[in-house]
Simulated scan of single mutants.
Amino acid sequence: MAHDPKTLQAAMAAAVPDLELTYKPMFGGILAYAGGKPVASLSDVGLALKLAGADQAALLSLPDAKPLQYGPDQPVSKSYVVVPDDLLADAAALRDWVHKAAQAAAKAPAKKVKKA
């Protein structure tokens, strides 16, 4: 099922009113950031959270969760997991997962800026 990134953004924002997120348009979709670090991809594929380790494995264990892949000829993401549609309708559960993604982003090292 194709998703509307703006609708996903509204659902995500409603689920985490306590979390300061910023959103930037990217390649026909939207990237969500917490503390300047990416936490989610919102696209026609769905809402995908950036997770690692046990949190990523736990989300992938849910029915209909899958690694993010924008198209059949595109690579499969190693860090983003598309949340199941059922989870989008459960604000409390979605809140928990978005907070986990934000916590993971906060722990991630800052990217080094390359000198020109």
Rank of each mutant, 00 (worst) to 15 (best):
G36F: 14
L51M: 06
Y23I: 04
S79R: 15
V83Y: 11
P72F: 15
S43P: 06
P25G: 08
P25K: 12
V39Y: 00
Y70K: 10
K112W: 08
A14R: 06
A52P: 06
K112A: 10
K50Y: 06
A34V: 04
I30P: 03
D73L: 14
Y23N: 06
A58V: 03
P67G: 12
L59C: 07
P17C: 08
P25H: 09
K37T: 10
L19W: 02
D90E: 00
P25F: 05
K100S: 06
A40I: 05
S77Q: 04
Y23E: 06
K24V: 11
Q56D: 07
A106C: 02
L68H: 14
A52Q: 13
A13K: 15
L59R: 02
A14T: 04
K50H: 03
A14N: 04
R95E: 07
A110E: 14
S43H: 07
P63Q: 10
L19Q: 05
K115G: 05
V81K: 02
L49G: 00
G36Q: 03
A54F: 10
V82K: 03
K107I: 13
A11D: 10
D73S: 13
Q9M: 13
A57D: 14
V16M: 08
K66S: 10
A65F: 01
V82F: 07
V113F: 04
L42Y: 00
A91F: 08
A57P: 14
P25Q: 14
P17D: 01
P38V: 15
K6T: 11
T7K: 07
L87K: 09
W97G: 05
V82I: 06
L42E: 02
K115R: 13
G53R: 12
F27G: 09
M26T: 11
T7I: 06
L21C: 05
L60G: 09
V82Y: 13
A54E: 12
Q103A: 12
G35P: 04
A11C: 04
A110H: 13
A34P: 05
T7C: 02
A32V: 00
A110S: 09
W97Q: 05
P84Y: 03
K78Y: 07
K111F: 05
K112Q: 10
S77G: 04
K37S: 08
A54H: 13
D85Y: 10
D44R: 15
A13E: 10
L19N: 04
V98E: 01
A52I: 14
R95A: 05
A34E: 05
A15K: 01
L51S: 11
A34D: 11
P17L: 12
D86R: 14
A101W: 00
G35F: 07
D44C: 08
I30C: 02
A93L: 13
G36V: 15
K100E: 01
T22D: 10
S77I: 08
M12T: 07
G53V: 11
R95G: 04
V76Y: 13
Q69A: 00
Y23A: 00
K107M: 14
H3K: 06
F27R: 09
A105Y: 00
A10V: 00
L60W: 11
G36C: 09
P5F: 04
